[in-house]
């Protein structure tokens, strides 16, 4: 043991420890951190994969879906597990990659009743969900529990990503106050998605999580990165705190998580 690391850990994390910005101290921060991944699908797969490799000590994974053959076009951690619950498949992947990680699985839908209790257990939440109901539920619960959030979403060839530190920068509702009406936006299933796209967006999210946990660099707070894979462009949209925001404004209307706001279609 040297600096609290086993011989195996010194090898595993050596490329982190060598970095002046990380070192043994930073690696220990990662190992004692708790991160919750909402969804183990397209975005969740690379997020889970790299946070586990980086040594984020506790990974919570919530998803109520099972692995389908059509997922394997982009969900790279579920190989060989068609028919299995995604949380079980993800856990198996993480255990094989890095035995240091304590994986907590939630094989259920995130909803108005469980969200606050689950979020309280974590240092940061990464949203890899694919629908607006969950996205707003996650945003509002993060604001209420003061939990930092990495937001990512994908559509066909495009993705967007931002980092929300409640009360220190704008939240998702500051920019998009309400979800578009149901049916307005086709779901991932109907719209199609380029298989490599969630890899890019999910890894930007994972990068933000690691930076936040280490306390290094400039986070995407107040900035939304918009990625267009066809034109290979990254644009940045400034996000401003909205003093009338129903979640984080001066007089927030959302002071508790009420089921009615989010509808019942909280599928991840």
């Amino acid at each position: 043991m040297l600096g609290g690391f086993s011989e195996e850990q010194i090898k595993r994390y050596s490329r982190h420890i060598i970095l002046p910005e990380v070192g043994g101290k930073g690696q220990k921060k990662l190992l004692s951190s708790k991160v919750l991944c909402i969804g183990a699908g397209g975005l969740g797969a690379p997020i889970i994969e790299y946070l586990a490799a980086a040594g984020v000590g506790r990974l919570g994974i919530i998803d109520d879906d099972t692995v389908d053959l059509s997922n394997l076009q982009r969900q790279v951690i579920h190989g060989g597990n068609v028919g299995k619950p995604k949380v079980e498949s993800a856990k198996q992947f993480v255990n094989n990659l890095n035995p240091d990680i304590d994986v907590r699985t939630y094989s259920e839908r995130l909803n108005a009743h469980n969200v606050v209790d689950i979020f309280k257990e974590y240092d940061m939440v990464v949203d890899g969900s694919d629908n607006f109901a969950t996205r707003y539920l996650v945003n509002d619960a993060c604001v209420l529990t003061d939990t930092p959030l990495s937001h990512g979403s994908i559509y066909r060839f495009e993705g967007q990503v931002t980092t929300i530190i409640p009360h220190k920068g704008p939240c998702y509702r500051c920019l998009f106050e309400h979800a578009p009406p149901p049916g307005m936006v086709p779901s991932c299933q109907e719209a199609g998605v380029l298989g490599v796209l969630p890899g890019i967006i999910g890894l930007i999210q994972a990068t933000e999580v690691v930076k936040y946990l280490l306390g290094i660099g400039e986070l995407l707070v107040g900035r939304l990165v918009y990625y267009d894979a066809l034109n290979m462009t990254f644009d940045e949209i400034k996000m401003r705190w909205n003093r009338n925001c129903p979640a984080c404004g001066e007089k927030p209307k959302i002071t508790s998580i009420q089921e009615e706001i989010y509808g019942e279609s909280c599928r991840i």
Binding site: G3, F5, I10, G23, G24
Partner: peptide
């Protein structure tokens, strides 16, 4: 190498 440096660095942090 590189564990010579990695271990020296870890010791210095203490």
């Amino acid at each position: 190498c590189p564990y010579t440096f990695v271990k020296t660095k870890l010791k210095l942090e203490e």
